[in-house]
Amino acid sequence: MRRRLYAGRDVSRAQSIEELRAIARRRVPNFCFEYVEGGAEEEMTLHRNRDVFSEIAFQPRTLVDVTRRNQRRQLLGQESASPFLIGPTGFSGLLSREGDVSIARAAAAAGIPFVLTNVSTTSLEDVVRRAGGCIWMQVYMYRTRAFVEQIARRAHEAGIGTLVLTTDSALYGKREWDTRNFSGPQNLNWRNKLDVIRHPRWIFDILYPRGFPHFANLGDLLGPGQTSVRGAASSILGQSLDPSLSWTDVEWLRGIWPGKLIIKGIMNAQDAARAISVGADGIVLSNHGGRQLDGALSAMDVLPEVVAEVKGRIAVMLDGGFRRGSDVVKAVALGADAVLLGRATTYGLAAGGQAGVERAIEIMRSEIDRVLGLLGCGDIGQLDQSYLRKV
């Protein structure tokens, strides 16, 4: 019943990520949508993440047989059906009931990895058990190192083989678009409370009958009664982050984690090289979706110099602003091993639950396939910078 409620004709007929975004905007309350959309301060970095793609043009080959096209990639020793995976996004449980499970199931069905956020509203064990597929676990470096160690141990015992450490959030960015919706810590103002009433479908899906969802992995960090996504959990989380985070902490995590370790938040070649020296298996170039340091470069801006420094020695991934298959192709041509999708699949989740995420993945895959054919490149592994021109 719930799947039919969301998986309507709007989602199935969406032709682009932008159309899924429009559906999502109608289907969830304003405060939820603005949490997904908002960037830091004047949102210059948020817009830079999209603008950068218009500065790179394709230079296609012609008279090439592209009857067969391949977009499969090897990533950290495993095959992925496409050159992208789904990155960690918080508060998914406010967009669709058990949203983290829905995203994980969609990723598993598509044969791509999914990075489960530490602030999920379903426990990591339940997501692994119910979704299957290739699940990675994201974690912040909290002041309470014992809790970080506990999350790592739980992930390992659940069968998760890859840990993703987010390093660009030692301090919270100033997200004005999001915080203006509240009259106090996570207390909606009257305008947004009235807007919630205008979304009975969302109320039935999210709030009925248990009320606001809770952060399922943070009980030992936040304490009893503090884990509701509506309560003071966000501000407490901000206080729990550690501004003293350094490479020594990464070395400590590497020492206790037996699986693959990814460092997310790298934005220059020197840090990428340092990641190799501390034993990381991969990096994610990221400005946190434009939600942290406003005025920062896009990950696409720094990708070529990072690839020149570390390509072949460590997996190089990136995120930020990817809305089209052509964006992904440009990143791979510049040397990226894979791209992490954030808002693109989150729009799908908000628009139609698991069906919406599946549609977002389908759109991206079909666009990549078409771009490869029109470029005259039958195999994504053959892409290089000769297919691009800076404009």
Score class of each variant (00 low, 15 high):
Met1Asn: 14
Met1Ile: 14
Arg3Pro: 01
Asp10Glu: 13
Gln15Asn: 05
Val28Phe: 09
Val36Ser: 02
Gly38Lys: 10
Met44Ile: 10
His47Tyr: 09
Thr62Gly: 14
Ser80Thr: 03
Pro83Gly: 13
Leu85Asp: 02
Gly87Pro: 02
Pro88Ile: 12
Pro88Glu: 10
Thr89Arg: 06
Ser92Ala: 15
Ser102Ile: 06
Ala107Tyr: 05
Val115Asn: 13
Leu124Asn: 02
Arg130Trp: 05
Gly132Glu: 09
Gly133Val: 01
Met137Glu: 13
Tyr140Glu: 06
Val164Tyr: 01
Ser169Lys: 11
Asp178Phe: 06
Ser183Glu: 12
Leu188Met: 15
Asn192Met: 07
Ile206Gly: 04
Ile206Trp: 11
Tyr208Ile: 15
Ala216Met: 05
Leu222Ser: 02
Gly223Tyr: 01
Gly225Ile: 02
Ser235Leu: 15
Ser235Met: 15
Gly238Arg: 07
Ser240Lys: 13
Ser244Leu: 01
Thr248Leu: 14
Val250His: 02
Val250Lys: 11
Trp257Gln: 13
Ala272Pro: 00
Ala272Met: 06
Ala280Gln: 09
Asn287Trp: 09
Gly290Tyr: 02
Gly290Pro: 00
Leu297Val: 12
Met300Leu: 08
Pro304Trp: 12
Glu305Thr: 06
Val306Lys: 03
Glu309Asn: 06
Glu309Arg: 10
Val339Phe: 07
Val339His: 06
Leu341Ile: 14
Arg343Met: 13
Thr346Arg: 15
Ile363Thr: 05
Gly373Tyr: 12
Gly381Asn: 14
